[in-house]
Design a protein around this nucleic acid. Sequence first.
DNA 1: GCGGATCAC
DNA 2: TATGGTGATCCGC
Length: 856
Amino acid sequence: MHSTKEKNDHCKDDLLLRMGLNDNKAGMEGLDKEKINKIIMEATKGSKYYGNELKKEKQVNQRIENMMQQKAQITSQQLRKAQLQVDRFAMELEQSRNLNNTIVHVDMDAFYAAVEMRDNPELKDKPIAVGSMSMLSTSNYHARRFGVRAAMPGFIAKRLCPQLIIVPPNFDKYRAVSKEVKEILADYDPNFMAMSLDEAYLNITKHLQERRNWPEDKRKYFVKTENAIENDQPGKEVDKLSEHERPISPLLFEDSPPDLQPPLNYEEQNNPQILQNSVVFGTSAEEVVKEIRFRIQQKTTLTASAGIAPNTMLAKVCSDKNKPNGQYQILPNRQAVMDFIKDLPIRKVSGIGKVTEKMLKALGIVTCTELYQQRALLSLLFSETSWHYFLHISLGLGSTHLARDGERKSMSVERTFSEISKAEEQYILCQELCSELAQDLQKEGLKGRTVTIKLKNVNFEVKTRASTVSSVVSTAEEIFAIAKELLRTEIDTDFPKPLRLRLMGVRISGFPNEEDKKHQQRSIIGFLQTGNQALSATGCILEKTDKDQFVKPLEMSHKKSFFDKKRSERKWSHQDSSKCQTVVKQSLQISQPFQVLKKNMSENLETSDNSDNCQIFTCPVCFREQRSISLEAFNKHVDVCLDRPSIRENSKMFSSSNASSTEVSLKENTNHSFSLCEKQHYETHQENVEITSVDCMNLEETRNNSSKAESVDSLRNEYSKEECSRLPSKSCIISLENEDAELLSRQEPLQPCIYQVTAGQALVCPVCNLEQKTSDLTLFNVHVDVCLNKGIIQELKNDKVQSLNQPKDSSRSTGNSSRVQKTVARTKRLGLTAKYSASKKIKPNNPRHTLDIFFK
DNA sequence: GCGGATCAC
DNA sequence: TATGGTGATCCGC
């Protein structure tokens, strides 16, 4: 937690900068700045961490050098022109300046540390920090005198302050306290914006209006004054470092000028046991914020600091001004704003970090005034986004409304550990992270298309590798299937040197937005038919245990434990049990005739997880509830519904849509979606040619209206061709039946159909030609996507056109063989892209399971 | 879309 | 002994 991140003086050393040393009052206790810096340097010098810091510093210096060179080439003519342009923009900004809002930034003082001190009196008067020997989240003000800061490793902090007590964090507790605080904040702005557990913005404009007419009673609060030894005089300077050591007192605002002290009425209350006093707050913004802070302290025994200003940028800076336990206001007039901004170091502004500060400093810019003076130059050296931002700051402008939280854009897990160099362990780790991520995803019901892995080696060098697949994924297995390949590539790249990792992370992004969801309507589905032995009742179950994907925990149990072996084992057993569930589901599925349920996402369906025989399904077409005894009956109903004209019309969109041609939009005006499946054959007969040129052409015609995705597909297909030629292969051909291809090419309405699985063989990836030990179509799809992506990457890496050699043993029809080959891949993609998913094992009487089938 | 960087908390 | 985890954004490919 860096809420109290002290943006500091301009240390020469970045490292010290990061440690955030400042305003150390070299009092009786504590250390002076030089001593602190010396200790930190001794502790850090020679470490790999420091080595990397130096390296990064060099990069930044290089950036600065480049910038300076650019600057040197700027002509005065250019500068004059820029000046005009920038000033025109500045004028517009000035005209749109909005001083009508009252924004408050509330920031709890040394939050985690304060909570710990409150709950453990032993810690009072002692320097403490919350965190671990590796990293501190926050420290109390006592510890700060020794230079102990947030984001500092505990072992260094200990050298600075041997008496330091490091308390492990209790996030549940902080959350609970935070909730209490938020309840108070909501009284002043129900739409307040929480930035973290200890920080929030409020827009109290409306509250202020209403409050003007409030009677005194509504602004009166009672004060507990046990222990009320009042030695604080209004206006008296108090030792702010002991904010938590004072008894609760109505005189909370010792930092305020006397005339701003809340009027105190020491009325006796009815309750004879507790002596209570009351305090009435005024109607001004300042009073409101005092009231807020007062209530926070009454409720939690913790203090908060706050800033009041016409916009968020200024409010944030203000809240830091009189910290701890203080507040500051910038009055809502332009002059007040400009006066405040004048000497403000840019580093104080949220968004200006260490690097930006350094770059601007190289241009002689430290304060906002200088930032404004150099505006023309900045517009020539920085991106538009950046110089616009700079201009806003230098004019004291900022957001005047609190944007409500948008939808999340990514979700990730990452972990640091002591070195792991063995590939097997890295895969296990990766899988574990994927599982965690999948769990988190499930909590929010999210699915994404891009998986990114993050690797940090023991030299602290960070790498990220991403892969985007054609449809959303969310399960641990799906994510791992992608992440694993990314990891494998990295391992292979360095082979035979091992990756010496200290951190690994997995992130997922590319969540469909609302618009996507509308179009998300699942498309034509169903496609593959899988191998008979794989699906023959029990056979597939064992197949499924792909030892590549599910490395047994045993294999690592004797090795160096990374995080916590027990935790790891727990996870594994959990995973095993979920695998068992899969097995059960799969068995059930197999015992059923292979039908795919067409359904919607209606909540009631999703949440009813009972095993009643008679289920209520909502038809995705007519949206009427269907009381069906069986899925078959329900399917029938849907089929009937689908055969109605409206659907036929809608389904024409299939061929005219610009989106992926495999996507069908149905009932676009609703949130409901459903899937169709298409009866298809997936032939895996060796040396069998199942696609005729004619079919391919037809199919291609129908797809020609797509644009970018199309070319990517072509690229991919090129690769797949090349792959095919390289790999010894049992060839794997996928075909659409003639009538299906014709159907597509003629743009006929789609007929609903039943997904049929018949006897077949194990799935063979059409790209790498390797048999996939899975019967899970989703996983299989993911594999193919990954394979295709790899192909592109490889091609780009090679940076050369691959030869068009035909695979010696690949099946082909007559005529333009490369074209045919290409189309084969295309055909495969068509089917593969449509994510039907018989992937999830269907448990017919469990609606949740059946839902999962379509909406992954 | 990818990867490196920067920033906040 | 030992320098975090999560999420967002931007920029230059």
